[in-house]
């Protein structure tokens, strides 16, 4: 979960197009670090809000390589170093026979890295009764969160959201 800023103005919308439009306007007006909430991923809004690319792909690739290397190391070490058994004069390091397990270990390690990285990146923790902004944000409502450090910011943001015909405007002070 991305954290809400200390004080902010939240505008609610019923339509994803309105949300993208509003996010664009807010960025044009000079508001930085805006966030948006939506029941499903909206494509294109990341560029509007200038959200950086996710770092998870590189983590998953690293996981893939580490897993594959460990898979090969395990087989090489057990069959060649720790307990070499000569089967029909075949080479101890019979690498073609190791390919399947190298692949499986790579995929497993990458998938687990991918999964755990998501928990880290999105700060996911089990929480029975979280304090959600609005219960319909996971249903059919959309929200634009504009951080407001000063009173001028706050009134400007409110003005902007009013102009954009936000369904509802809330001010949050923590």
């Amino acid at each position: 979960m991305a954290r809400l800023p200390k004080s902010c103005v939240i505008g609610f919308f019923n339509d994803p197009d309105q949300l993208v439009h509003a996010a664009g306007e807010a960025t044009n007006e000079g508001f930085r670090n805006c966030d948006a909430y939506s029941p499903y991923p909206i494509h294109g809004i990341e560029e509007v809000l200038r959200i950086r690319r996710s770092w998870i792909p590189s983590a998953a690739l690293t996981g893939l390589l580490i897993g594959a290397c460990l898979g090969f190391a395990l087989q090489y070490w057990t069959h060649v170093i720790d307990w070499p058994i000569n089967v029909g004069g075949k080479p101890l390091n019979a690498w073609p026979a190791y390919v399947v397990i190298v692949f499986e270990c790579g995929v497993l390690c990458s998938a687990l890295t991918n999964f755990l990285s998501m928990f880290v990146a999105c700060r996911l923790v089990p929480h029975p009764f979280p304090d959600v902004i609005d219960e319909d944000l996971t249903n059919d409502r959309f929200a634009l969160v504009i951080p407001a450090r000063s009173d001028e910011d706050e009134s400007a943001a409110t003005q902007l959201l009013k102009r954009l015909k936000a369904d509802e405007i809330r001010k949050v002070e923590q």
């Binding site: 991923p41 959200i51 996710s54 998870i56 999105c122 923790v125 029975p128």
Partner: peptide, 26 residues
């Protein structure tokens, strides 16, 4: 409460969705 625990505090922030979509595609 039960589904709250399972949902892992998911809020639907666009920043989370950006990570989530990469994870899903991977």
């Amino acid at each position: 409460g039960v589904y709250g625990v399972l949902a892992m505090n998911w809020r639907g922030s666009i920043r989370d969705w950006a990570h989530y979509e990469r994870v899903y595609a991977q």
